[in-house]
């Protein structure tokens, strides 16, 4: 066990965990930030996507020891009132079915638009390809990313 100082959603947090603990489980079990979801544990589904210094990363493969000093954003901190353009676009298109993967989808989309505010169809497909939606809401996800890009 060791103590780690993390910056999460603009707030300093201290946790005492094994250094190998993935940020996913630090968020979920130790900090009660459960919007970041567990899907596969091997960075293949994208349900656990967070922002690390603005980049979309899979938190299930990010040891807490590698996250110190970086700025972490989770779905809970993407916007104060759930009104980030990506979240608003998700609502406008009524994207979710079960909803489980959507936080990860939204975090991937928000990072894409941060880095590329005018993505092409292909850019969107490439960026979103790492996030599985078992319900198959992919068309609405793509449409919502386009809407969000227009409203940035």
């Amino acid at each position: 066990m060791a103590t780690f100082n993390l910056t999460i959603n603009g707030t300093s947090k201290q946790v005492d965990v094994d250094p190998s603990t993935p940020v996913l489980w630090v968020l979920r079990d130790h900090l009660d930030l459960v919007g970041t979801k567990f899907g596969c544990g091997i960075a293949q589904c994208g349900a656990c996507t967070i922002h690390l210094d603005g980049n979309a990363v899979r938190s299930c493969q990010l040891p807490v020891s590698a996250a110190e000093g970086a700025s972490i954003t989770t779905i809970e901190g993407l916007s104060e009132n759930g009104d980030h353009p990506v979240q608003k676009a998700w609502m406008e298109h009524d994207v979710p079915q079960c909803g489980y993967c959507q936080a990860g989808q939204i975090m991937t989309a928000a990072a894409l638009l941060q880095q590329n505010p005018n993505p092409s169809e292909e850019d969107i497909e490439n960026a979103m390809n790492g996030n599985i939606c078992r319900c198959g809401t992919y068309l609405r996800i793509k449409a919502a990313v386009k809407t969000a890009a227009q409203n940035l």
């Binding site: 079990d29 009660d32 459960v34 919007g35 779905i75 979240q87 979710p96 909803g99």
Partner: peptide, 29 residues
Amino acid sequence: TSKKNVDIEKIVSGKPLFSIDHKVEGMKY
């Protein structure tokens, strides 16, 4: 008539909606 998913705001803001998100005091894993 088309109505939005009643949980849409909670889903897009990462609120605990699933049993996997549930936690109570003294809970073990």
